[in-house]
């Protein structure tokens, strides 16, 4: 009996590692090949198989071309500004809204919660046809602030995360602060907001990844060259470079590197954030 189980668990161990290694390879190979290709000169790119190693791993020429051609410095700046402003504003407004919806009973509270719930069912791309028209009327197209406003307006996930978090913060905290003469503003900003830290991290992770990778709206609402964000800049590679994948791969890697570095630094928070965001069901 004991022997059978040990055979079973050895088999299970083998299955476990083989499947995990295989999955990791599948996840990495497309990107690794991209890395190999990005370091190849034109000549090498045309003459060698994609799976061979580049001669010189210090050949940064393609990166330099990709970086200057797409004006990446500018795009990183644009994306950076959008990220900071949108994250700051939507975390503030999202947590404020969640505070009111969770802590105050008033007519219309349930209606408002349902409005947000239903909004999360509408796929973003579907309404863009008419959002475009509204943006056009308001004169918000081709302004960085216009794009930021749209991004703030489509912030439903983080409201849910905050709502759920408030659910678990005891109301007695508010009550005792009010006894001590605190106003509602004070309760929120001095007592509750600092306690929201885990929820803030979660929504920063989820929303941050979303904003960094957002393409569709950025393409619609930021059409001039100086306003391009990372993903729209990358998309410009389709035209001039067609099949010059050594340049394209370099461009792809330039966009991946910053987020990879951040991920490696904040790994724990990222996983924690993902897991916390998931429990909303």
């Amino acid at each position: 009996m004991r022997e059978r189980r040990s055979i079973g668990s050895t088999l299970f161990g083998i299955l476990k590692y083989v499947s995990l290694i295989a999955a990791s390879l599948v996840a990495l190979i497309p990107v690794v090949v991209c890395v190999l290709t990005a370091f190849k000169t034109n000549e090498e790119y045309e003459s060698t198989s994609v799976l061979t190693l580049p001669k010189n791993f210090l050949n940064f020429e393609n990166f330099a071309i990709a970086f200057t051609q797409a004006d990446m410095a500018r795009c990183f700046l644009n994306t950076g500004i959008v990220l900071v402003v949108v994250l700051f504003v939507s975390i503030l407004t999202g947590s404020m809204l969640a505070y009111v919806l969770n802590r105050f009973k008033f007519k219309g509270n349930a209606v408002i919660q349902n409005l947000f719930l239903f909004a999360s069912l509408i796929p973003g791309i579907a309404t863009q046809v008419t959002v475009y028209k509204i943006m056009y009327t308001l004169g918000l197209i081709n302004h960085l602030y216009g794009y930021m406003i749209v991004l703030m307006g489509t912030d439903i996930i983080s409201i849910y995360i905050f709502l759920q978090f408030f659910e678990n913060l005891p109301v007695s905290l508010d009550e005792s602060a009010i006894m001590d003469g605190c106003t509602y503003f004070g309760v929120f900003f001095r007592i509750l907001f600092p306690l929201l830290k885990p929820a803030i991290v979660t929504s920063m992770v989820l929303k941050g990844v979303g904003i960094y990778n957002e393409y569709y709206m950025s393409n619609l609402y930021l059409q001039t060259k100086e306003l391009k964000t990372i993903s729209t800049a990358l998309y410009t590679f389709t035209g001039p470079y067609g099949n010059q994948y050594n340049y394209i791969c370099a461009g792809v890697l330039i966009t991946i590197i910053p987020i990879l570095v951040l991920f490696l630094i904040f790994q724990k928070q990222v996983y924690g954030g993902m897991a916390a965001g998931a429990v909303k069901g």
């Binding site: 990844v209 393409y215 729209t232 990358l234 991946i256």
Partner: peptide, 10 residues
């Protein structure tokens, strides 16, 4: 997990 962080265009 890493592929999730790469943008759709990339």
């Amino acid at each position: 997990f890493f592929p999730y962080l790469i943008c759709g265009i990339a």
